[in-house]
Nucleic acid binder design. Structure first.
Lengths: 335, 335
DNA sequence: CCCGTTGACTTGAACGTTCAAATGATACAC
DNA sequence: GTGTATCATTTGAACGTTCAAGTCAACGGG
């Protein structure tokens, strides 16, 4: 590592110029009330004059804390991208408010991931981690908990909800809201287009739909597809070919919803007027769809803020907490 | 900042356990050849035993270099996202190879951006910056150059090409390749769908098309639209309504291309068979389009690698260089 | 007048690393 | 046997900050 930075003013520079000790300068910066008004002014003037800023590395060394959190840079192939992209942005913003920063890591494989985190933490590169896309039997969760490495996750700790701090969006609430919305709008044949292998996330979303349908005393109409457009289109075609065709479809994802929209258009069904379609995630896909795709929006901004608050809390040895936030409906042409 | 990390083994711990001095341990880690084989083995054993890792903050302090580069987390609204997403991923990977990391910043406004960079650099948080999406009269470029802050950019330094280190993709080459490809496939009426306000990027792409058309002795057919689907669709409709309708369209972006594809489908023109469409950027949009959208792909991986190499070069006081890389065609259904 | 308290400031040490210089030890040439 | 080169290792200082303990003066109550 070459030393390339031109020499910056240090706390000693300022101290000498202001005719005080280093500690007084430090106090002037971090605890102004401890310094008498006139020296404070003098020190501040010098600080501005030489454009002094405390060196973060030195501070990090002494405080054993870098103010850095690591987040795994998602792979470009992943569909979730479009949600996580927004989340990452909000996360940066939230970190900033706590004078923290996010650094990215890009593990090649999942096995490497935990090892990489361990490495980063033990070398004091970062104070902890923000995970996203957790799933049942997630090695990262158990691994980090076991090692006592601080982290928060966007997504529940499925296996041990009390063992770590997480924030998640209540998928069931989202689909329930959507279903009830359609009911209030007069729809009576409301279908659900979900994922076949129903992991935890897909399961909850389906659950919300079923609950709502049960309490509305309606017969559920369900179909399943993979999270790809073609698959969704095919599954939706089947749904829409039913003799008693559904008038609204609540979808497990925007991909599913867009596929559904395509299927409807191909069959000459007017999306919006004749068929309501609700996506999930309010991703960039919603803008591409025509008519605009209504979607269940995750409050990523709130998730990010809460996660950061919680992480700072952890640093002050608060106990782990799980938080479930409710999503909200975003109405566009399709609903 | 609370000190929350449990006490980790330091170089002194290892030194004591191995019965050598701190410096010997340091050498064992960073310059093994300076240590005799048997002590080396002894030290390495202890290191593994206590799972020692050099503390990055301490190293950063002493070396005046953090091994951190800052990159501006792009705003979720921006269209370029879909390209930059991939770039960011590759950048992380490339940084990793040089034992560096990327940290994100999220300035609220453009004016803040430079101030934020200044702040980050002067407080020793980062060693430098990676910019993307540079444009003529870019305040960031001139500002960073003036302050002597190290940076590299994905995108030329339009105003002062020799003043800073950049890597860019040769847009003209891309559209030229596309145009020539269509010519070789037998097309003779090849149109270009560009941006109206032709900034530097759009201008170069248009340029490449015109050059190719000129050298092929074909009459250029041009239309313009904003980088939005509706706008592109409208402009493309006009193009396709010409009496002597073009048989291929080279587009300035994937958005333009997708809009064009929609227009064609609405007019009952078979995309692929009757009309070739070529996008630009090979973004996620290409996968959504049907038939799959052919596109001019920027070699983001190579860009990222080159940028990182160059940055490391800068640290060793190499002179600034500009590098232009050629994009390549990715063929899918639409061409 | 003494003593405890408070406020403003200073001093030395510590955080964990690496650089630069110093110390021995061994080997080799003359 | 002396001088010189090389190698393995150690020592002290430095990077820039903050903590903990200290000094010194002023103040106020008894």
């Amino acid at each position: 590592m070459s030393r390339n930075q031109q020499r910056m003013p240090t706390i000693a520079t300022v101290a000498a110029l202001a005719g005080v000790s280093r500690q007084t300068v430090s106090n002037a910066v971090r605890a102004p009330h401890r310094v008498s008004p006139d020296t404070l002014l003098r020190v501040q003037t010098i600080i501005r004059e030489v454009d002094y800023r405390p060196n973060r590395s030195a501070r990090a060394l002494q405080a054993r804390s870098t103010g850095l959190l690591a987040y795994r840079c998602h792979r470009p192939e992943e569909t979730e991208n479009l949600v996580l992209d927004r989340f990452l942005h909000e996360l940066c913003r939230a970190a900033d408010e706590h004078d923290h920063h996010i650094t990215l890591v890009s593990p090649i494989s999942t096995d490497q991931e935990l090892a990489m985190y361990r490495e980063l933490y033990r070398s004091g590169r970062v104070d902890g981690f923000v995970l996203s896309g957790t799933h049942p039997n997630d090695q990262r969760l158990t691994g980090l908990v076991d090692e006592g490495i601080p982290f928060v996750s966007f997504g529940q700790n499925w296996d041990a909800p009390r063992a770590s701090t997480w924030v998640d969006v209540d998928g069931a609430s989202g689909t329930r809201q959507a279903t009830e919305h359609y009911w209030r709008s007069g729809h009576r044949r409301i279908a659900f287009l979900g994922w076949p292998d129903d992991g935890a996330v897909g399961g909850h979303r389906r659950e919300g739909y079923r609950e709502a349908m049960a309490s509305l005393r309606l017969e559920p109409i369900e179909a399943s597809c993979f999270d790809r457009l073609e698959s969704a289109e095919a599954a939706a075609s089947t749904l829409l070919a039913l003799t008693d065709r559904p008038t609204a479809v609540v979808c497990v994802s925007d991909t599913a919803a867009l596929g559904c929209s395509w299927a409807a258009q191909k069959m000459g069904i007017a999306v919006g007027a004749e068929l309501g379609i609700m996506g999930f995630d309010d991703s960039a896909l919603t803008l591409i769809a025509r008519p605009g795709l209504s979607s269940i929006r995750q409050p990523t901004d709130l998730v990010a803020q809460t996660l950061m608050d919680r992480f700072i809390g952890l640093q002050h040895s608060e106990a782990p907490t799980g938080t479930l936030l409710a999503p909200s409906l975003v109405h566009r042409g399709s609903s």
